[in-house]
Design a protein around this nucleic acid. Structure first.
Length: 696
DNA sequence: AATCCATTATTTTTT
DNA sequence: ATAATGGATT
């Protein structure tokens, strides 16, 4: 190919104009075409047939996708015919928002959702076709771990020989066809079978099922397949590099006939292989859609030349990638800044101080700053410093509001009301608050469930009414009371009373407040704080119920939102004027004027555990580092501590090997001036005190 | 038989 | 620092 860059552009521009012509749209009515470069325009206007868009970091991918959908709508494609699949809920919300702004239309019939949320939609509609009952529960990792423990106990699998996380990961691979239970894992075969059987018994599905079961429906019910294909004639997949084989298969099933499928991705930003993301999908796409149009977006509009060169150099060390070179017109003399703080406290202090001074000297707004970390655990020191320095910040990800024990208790009650066979949730609330149902009673119940192959709820009903019940009359009475509670509130949740109102009454009836007071008698502040969280939770359910955009506000719908993280976190504030603190994974797709990468150390990135488990992970860790670098628009800071507190010990730490892959002329090592002013020290303790004892 | 209390091991990333 | 487990206590 001897065409110069400009010639190539002209050539592609001409092709884009032709596409427009073919749709009967005159270019001058499509003003936004002028805002796109030729490749982008082509990607927007080529709506028929398969398209593969390789979109480098910062190449305007989101613009292309939103413009493309807007363009299709303007060309007369009905909203209901379009299915846009994203990877995270944040991405799908954002896409919805941007398209709404662009078209100025209500988008009630447009489907933009994550693969998992789409799976839930399908299951809600069709799950009875494959022998499941309605009102299924969705089990997250936590629930799955509890279930695995229960199952192991039941079949007397020695718990101390069971690595729960490893086993769960293996089971997930088995279910999605990425591993087999061969002779190495012969002892796990029974456990796996029992585990799956329990899921079905409890009318529960896991995250993998959300992708696998819809495929089963489509395979077993040709009428459903035809119906769904007929509806979604245009399919778009964002973050294609993060799709798993199962997700790919689902997408392929839907688009095989219409062939209008557009996938957008960047292999250099594939950072979810631990969740099944499969690089092979690019090759698979080439095979399944040989007539596809391939478009490469390589012009970067985000970062300075310095940052981009560093990122390019780093990622070039990976061997497994499609050739690609990002370029930008934005030259810069501002170097990447690297520093070596003594420990994580000093690192946090450095970050906080730098942000403060930039906000004065450069008039930088807090929300233009992103602080990236490899693991959630690294956030603590930084959060404490931000609190001390009164820097407003927002953490995305990590321990969310919904994983607090008091909220989980509420959710478990709601889940049991929706699906009484959900043993895992039932076990959680059975004796919370304490109602005298303890170990011995549970033993009897467990015997019954194992013998009769039923859920706990059914076993309880049987034992309460049985004449020759092995239970004491007191235990019987306690169980009976519990069953009646569940039955009453189940009815109430499904009556017109409202979810929030019912939950409020339930919390009141079980006297959860008293329970908190007893559980936390040494610290009544905590009890107050937790009860306040419940109040917030109830209020957020009320908001959900009042929201006119929710077509069908039911308990069931609300619970699936929560399981998919599709919810409005009452903790999350506007985000305006707040420094964004998050993991690199959570930062994908975002950009910030100034980025700090904290903990750029060996064993953190690359993460020791991930490399130890799987040597191939090295390249993925490098991609992760690459993603971190390319989030920055103007200025990038890297910091690597000399020592770090790991658990309770202070261990020495060395810089990440990836730092050495950045050309040294792009980097400036900066000295730390670590004088801590006395009044800041006072503030620090005041802030801490305020944090742990609010209002005191 | 249920609950209380001290000792022990445990931290990757997310739908 | 937190959560789960096992032994002592009511």
């Amino acid at each position: 190919m001897l065409l110069s860059k400009e010639h190539e552009h002209l050539f592609i521009q001409a092709a884009a104009l032709q596409e427009l012509d073919a749709c009967g749209i005159r270019p001058n009515t499509m003003s936004y075409i002028d805002e796109l470069n030729p490749e982008q325009a082509r990607a927007v206007t080529h709506t028929e047939g398969p398209v593969l868009i390789i979109a480098g970091a910062g190449s305007g991918k989101t613009r292309v996708i939103t413009f493309r959908i807007a363009h299709m709508l303007r060309s007369g494609v009905p909203q209901s015919a379009i299915l846009a699949l994203t990877f995270t809920n944040k991405a799908s919300r954002e896409m919805q928002q941007r398209i709404r702004e662009l078209t100025g239309e209500k988008l009630a019939r447009l489907t933009i959702s994550t693969f998992h949320a789409f799976g839930v939609r399908m299951l809600k509609k069709y799950i009875t076709r494959i022998g499941f009952r309605e009102n299924f529960s969705i089990y997250d990792q936590q629930d799955q771990i509890s279930l695995l423990k229960e199952t192991a106990r039941e079949i007397k699998f020695p718990l101390d020989r069971l690595d729960l996380n490893f086993t769960l990961g293996l089971f997930s691979k088995v279910k999605t066809g990425r591993a087999r239970l061969n002779e190495d894992y012969a002892d796990l075969v029974e456990l796996y079978r029992e585990h799956q059987e329990h899921l079905k018994l409890y009318n529960a599905v896991d995250f993998d099922d959300l992708i696998v079961l819809p495929q089963r429906i489509l395979t077993e019910c040709p009428d459903v397949l035809a119906e769904v294909r007929e509806q979604y004639r245009y399919i778009l997949v964002d973050e294609f590099q993060d799709t798993s084989s199962e997700q790919y298969n689902l997408m392929h099933m839907l688009s095989e006939e219409s062939r209008n499928v557009c996938v957008v991705g960047d292999d250099d930003q594939s950072i979810y292989s631990w969740r099944g993301a499969n690089y092979e999908n690019f090759l698979q796409f080439d095979r399944h859609y040989p007539e596809r149009l391939e478009i490469k977006l390589e012009q970067n509009y985000r970062s300075t030349d310095t940052i981009l060169r560093a990122a390019n150099e780093v990622i070039a060390h990976n061997t497994n990638r499609r050739a690609k070179e990002l370029w930008t017109g934005q030259s810069s003399t501002v170097p990447i800044e690297l520093c070596f703080p003594e420990d994580e406290t000093e690192e946090a202090r450095f970050i906080a101080r730098t942000i403060k001074s930039l906000s004065v000297t450069e008039k930088l707004k807090y929300h233009d700053v992103g602080v990236l970390i490899r693991t959630n655990a690294l956030s603590r020191a930084i959060e404490e410093e931000f609190l001390a320095q009164r820097i407003p910040y927002k953490v995305s990800g990590g321990q969310s509001f919904f994983s607090r024990s008091e909220i989980k208790d509420c959710i478990a009650y709601m889940r049991v009301a929706a699906n009484p066979d959900d043993d895992i949730s039932l076990l959680r609330v059975l004796n919370t608050p304490r109602r005298g149902i303890g170990r011995k009673t549970l033993e009897v119940l467990n015997e019954q469930t194992a013998r009769e192959k039923t859920s706990l709820h059914i076993a309880m009903q049987a034992l309460v009414s049985a004449e020759d019940s092995p239970l004491s009359s007191r235990a019987k009475a306690d169980l009976e009371g519990f069953l009646k509670l569940i039955e009453d509130y189940r009815a109430s949740f499904f009556s017109g009373k409202g979810i929030a109102k019912t939950l409020e009454a339930l919390v009141d009836e079980i006297d959860y407040w008293q329970y908190l007071v007893i559980e936390y008698q040494r610290n009544d502040q905590i009890a107050k704080w937790k009860f306040r969280n419940i109040t917030l939770f109830i209020a957020s359910i009320q908001d959900y119920e009042k929201d006119p955009d929710n077509l069908d506000p039911s308990l069931y719908d609300y619970l699936s939102r929560i399981s998919l993280n599709l919810r409005d976190d009452p903790d999350a504030e506007t985000g305006d004027g707040q420094v964004q603190l998050m993991t690199i994974h959570a930062a994908k797709g975002l950009e910030h004027e100034v980025v700090f990468l904290a903990g750029a150390e060996d064993n953190i990135i690359p993460h020791a555990k991930s490399v130890e488990e799987n040597p191939d992970a090295m390249e993925e860790e490098r991609r992760l580092f690459y993603v971190a670098l390319t989030r920055a628009k103007r200025k990038l800071y890297l910091s690597a501590c000399r020592y770090r507190r790991v658990m309770r010990e202070r261990v020495s730490s060395s810089p990440s090997p990836f730092i050495d892959e950045i050309p040294s002329e792009l980097v400036q090592v900066s000295e730390l001036d670590d004088a801590l002013e006395p009044e800041t020290a006072v503030d620090y303790f005041a802030a801490l005190k305020n944090r742990f004892a609010p209002g005191a």
